[in-house]
């Protein structure tokens, strides 16, 4: 085989790789299911934290709130609540929602200080 022909074979091979990647990443990417909450989009995460804050307002149980926030994995509950508060402030959440999140952040910071 001539060298120039080898070059065409290699180029064709690379085109095949490119087509495979495009198909596998863009046209028909792997479908995901059974995911963990840390993969959620930021607005869904923030809304979950807001739900925890709403429940905390009634229950006043920081341990339960921290357990609910623990679904997001490695971060501390206060960091999770702080992230949600930052998101709420920059994305037009209502004042009452921000207030609830502030209360949750304060509670989680205090709880982190006393929990073992």
């Amino acid at each position: 085989m001539k060298p120039i022909r080898w070059i065409f074979v290699i180029v064709t091979f690379l085109i095949g790789i490119g087509a495979g990647l495009a198909y596998g990443w863009i046209i028909d990417p792997v479908e995901f299911f059974d995911l963990t909450p840390d993969t959620l989009r930021a607005d869904y995460k923030s809304d979950y934290v807001l739900m925890v804050a709403e429940a905390y307002r009634l229950e006043q149980d920081p341990g339960t709130a921290a357990r609910r926030l623990a679904v997001f994995g490695a971060q501390s509950p206060s960091a999770i609540a702080s992230d949600a508060l930052d998101y709420a402030r920059t994305n037009g959440f209502s004042d009452s929602d921000i207030l609830l999140l502030q209360e949750l952040v304060t509670a989680m910071q205090a709880w982190s200080g006393i929990s073992p």
Binding site: F13, I15, G16, G20, L21, Y23, V30
Partner: peptide, 15 residues
């Protein structure tokens, strides 16, 4: 053959 091999390799990597 080169095209199919490349395609298969690309799909295996992507999936």
């Amino acid at each position: 053959l080169a095209l199919l091999a490349g395609l298969g390799l690309g799909l295996a990597y992507a999936w």
